[in-house]
């Protein structure tokens, strides 16, 4: 294969960039869910959740 170094470098960059984006989104989601769970443990509720609790 001619110019194999350029071709594999391009595909490697695609893997690095896309894997980086996926990893960042997953890590961000996990951190947010942890913060959300922590707030719920402390008894903090969203206004809509409080309305639902009052209704039931």
């Amino acid at each position: 294969m001619s110019h194999a170094g350029f071709i594999f470098a391009a595909y490697a960059m695609a893997v690095v960039v896309l894997a980086g984006v996926v990893g960042w989104i997953i890590a961000d989601g996990r951190a947010l869910r942890r913060r959300l769970a922590d707030l719920e443990v402390r008894g903090v509720r969203r206004r809509s959740d409080r309305r639902e609790e009052q209704a039931t």
Partner: peptide
């Protein structure tokens, strides 16, 4: 999270 943190 932001809304709940402000509420807290």
């Amino acid at each position: 999270v932001r809304t709940m943190e402000l509420t807290a």
